[in-house]
Nucleic acid binder design. Sequence first.
DNA 1: TTGGTTTATTTACATTGTTAAGTAAATTTG
DNA 2: CAAATTTACTTAACAATGTAAATAAACCAA
Lengths: 210, 210
Amino acid sequence: MGIVERKEKQKLEIRKLILDASMKLFVEEGFGNVTIRKIADLIEYSPTTVYLYFKDKDEIFFSLHDIGFQKMEEMNKDLVTINNPLLRLHKMGESYLEFGMSNPEYYNLMFIQDEPMNKITELGCEWVKGDTAIGRLKETVTECIEKGYIMKGDPHLVSLSVWGFVHGLVSLAIRGRMEKFVPEMEMILPVMKQSLNWFVNNIEVRPAGS
Amino acid sequence: MGIVERKEKQKLEIRKLILDASMKLFVEEGFGNVTIRKIADLIEYSPTTVYLYFKDKDEIFFSLHDIGFQKMEEMNKDLVTINNPLLRLHKMGESYLEFGMSNPEYYNLMFIQDEPMNKITELGCEWVKGDTAIGRLKETVTECIEKGYIMKGDPHLVSLSVWGFVHGLVSLAIRGRMEKFVPEMEMILPVMKQSLNWFVNNIEVRPAGS
DNA sequence: TTGGTTTATTTACATTGTTAAGTAAATTTG
DNA sequence: CAAATTTACTTAACAATGTAAATAAACCAA
């Protein structure tokens, strides 16, 4: 079945071509300016050809959202080596902030935009990528609690809180709600890290009298 | 000049008609399904009439975003009577969560969607409504720090952190990213409140040995 | 070569935001 | 009151969009 294989490979190549072009447009012109026709122009196919590889526009966004999680995972892979769970949690947070601020378009698709989730509910399946990422957070939080680094509590709830915290910062920033707080662009990430620092300091259980 | 006055009043009435219709559509059919034509249909005018009252679609969204802040302010007006600043901060947080969850469309316009901010940067002016709301948060946080209810730190940074926290929860919830954490709809707000509770407990300075 | 399958394109349509031009009524001016 | 002008609105139209149907071209098995 060598021919079938080759065909499949070609099919995947064009899919990739479409996704790359979409992301390029997404980054350069913003979410609202990604159109099927521009994508088609960029890959030098007719607009309708795109529909041979993706059911509709939302499916393209869903695929990009997926790629975003892969990128994030890659960025996080070194963190497992950190032994101290609270330090690991802190670094995970920093990594999250960095990912969001340096890939706002992916972040947008992964955690803010509705379109990729539409696709998920439409297919009746779960948000696999997001859930596994959160799963890893939960492991670390659980370890923090078990080893007494942070106050005893429901790991589930604490994980949600931690995620909420970093997501709040990133999403405020990339949607332009932080300008009054942090007027200079290049200060946003540092300030967010300070904020995370404050957060971790506060949830850390300090030995009595320190 | 009674006639001029009456005319102005009529003009405002139609503006309100448009805004109400927009909000109705927004709530019932979602952000993406608000179209000028549907608005016009609803108020029984031609689509172009809308443009006599609003420069463009974004200006409608901006006005709605503004109304959202008014509603929020109204919801918060009782809070100033709370003397204990940490309790006040806690209640402000709860109120914020409640507002977001019971008015997701307004929340969307106020803190997530790009369009209203486009209008602001276009006009070269500031995000007045948002900034004053945040100002009130900052006052309470400052008081908390001064009176020793929470750890000493930069009020600016702490305010951003608090805001980030509650915003993170609300925006994850209304963009459907919390389903795995909290599968039952009606549990979302309670869980978010628990989360806020945990947060406040952690930032509160406890007397040594308690 | 023939007939079927895959892959792409050309047309086409409905929906969108928005503008330009036109019209009828209301108001002002003489 | 009659003429001029302003106001409030509509009709018609344009360009851009997502997407479907019809069609043509390329490819391959028989």
